Amino acid sequence: MLLTLSDPATRNTLSPQIYAAFVEALNYADAEDQVRCVVLTGDGGHFCSGGNLQRLVGNRAAGPQVQTESIERFHELVEALRAFPKPVIAAVEGAAAGAGFSLALTCDLLVAAKDARFVLSYGRVGLSPDGGAVSHLMQALPRSQVMQLMLLAEPIGAEQLHRQGVVNYLAEPGQALTQALELAERLGQMAPNAMASAKDLVHKAQAGALRQHLALERDHFVNNLFHDNGGEGIEAFFGRRPPQFK
């Protein structure tokens, strides 16, 4: 099954509607025996730019509970992907930013174009990561590099992440989806029950820690969104000016 995030005008931002549609698609794929693998990609030359800041502005006006519920829907998707019994491959072109980076890390295998860029962009607008990005990166990268990615919101290239084991396969620009589909064909020849067992073993080895970490990410994100610096960061982004954090 090929799932495409498609809102090219916003570089495929995420929303509660997308979370719900994604979970519905996974439920269908789980029940359909002919579906052996799921491939996730983005439309318009980019994977996903993360959360929609316009929606966050509205959530700030609506109150913390609205944002808490929104993050919980996203985190339910993260846990559903981890528990899903069939392989999920991310095919990344262009940018995977913020929650888009988190989403790519949640997939079982990651194919990225050589010129793809990944960034935990939260700090630029006075926010903190969600979607399990920190938990996943801490299992693969040195603490110092994770801190650099988080604190400075610096982009990192696919080739560097491939050398460090975060990206499984590199593709020529424009070929990430093609290579991911070829990988899916290979996985389709494997015993589905054995792959489900492998995923279950890995998921259960990490599930408790991930769930606790997701709860921490939710609480920190909501607190930072409703801090004055959260409002300043988002206003500065839309005003195309440097933020004045206090």
Rank of each mutant, 00 (worst) to 15 (best):
G157A: 04
R117F: 08
S144E: 15
Q139Y: 15
E154H: 12
A140Q: 13
L137P: 06
Q164K: 04
N168V: 04
A133E: 02
L170D: 00
L149W: 01
V134H: 13
L161G: 00
P129E: 05
G157W: 02
H162R: 11
P155K: 09
N168A: 10
V167A: 02
L149D: 00
G131R: 01
A158K: 10
L170T: 01
I156S: 00
E154F: 08
V125N: 06
G126N: 01
R143H: 06
R117Q: 11
Y169G: 04
G131M: 01
L120Y: 01
M147H: 13
L152W: 03
L137T: 03
H136P: 01
M150D: 07
L152V: 12
G157V: 06
R124E: 12
Q139P: 14
G165K: 04
M150L: 14
Q139N: 15
L151C: 13
S135Q: 14
H162S: 07
Q160W: 06
L120N: 02
M138K: 07
I156L: 02
R163C: 11
E159F: 12
Q145V: 13
V119I: 11
N168E: 07
Q164R: 02
R124G: 12
P142S: 07
S121M: 12
V166R: 05
R124H: 11
M138G: 09
F118Q: 00
G157D: 07
M147P: 14
R143I: 11
E159G: 09
L137W: 04
N168Y: 06
S121N: 08
G165N: 05
A133R: 08
R143A: 09
Q145D: 13
Q160V: 08
A171W: 03
Q160I: 12
G157S: 09
V119M: 11
E154Q: 13
V167K: 00
L152H: 08
Q148T: 15
F118V: 05
G132M: 03
V166F: 07
Q148S: 15
Q139E: 12
R163A: 12
V167I: 07
H136Q: 07
A116V: 02
F118G: 00
M147E: 12
P142G: 04
F118W: 00
Q139W: 15
L149M: 09
L137F: 05
R163V: 11
A116Y: 03
A116W: 04
L152E: 12
M147K: 15
S135E: 15
G157M: 05
L152S: 08
L120E: 00
P155L: 10
S144D: 12
P129V: 05
A153Y: 03
A116P: 00
M147C: 15
Q148P: 15
E154N: 09
Q139S: 14
A140L: 12
S135G: 11
A140I: 10
G165I: 04
R124V: 11
V146P: 07
E154V: 13
G165M: 04
E154A: 09
S144H: 15
S135Y: 15
V119E: 07
Q148R: 15
I156R: 04
L161M: 02
V119N: 14
S144N: 14
S121E: 10
G157Y: 03
P155E: 09
A133K: 06
E159K: 14
V119S: 12
L151N: 14
Y122G: 01
V134G: 13
I156E: 07
G132I: 07
L152A: 10
H136W: 04
A153R: 02
P155S: 11
R163W: 12
A153Q: 03
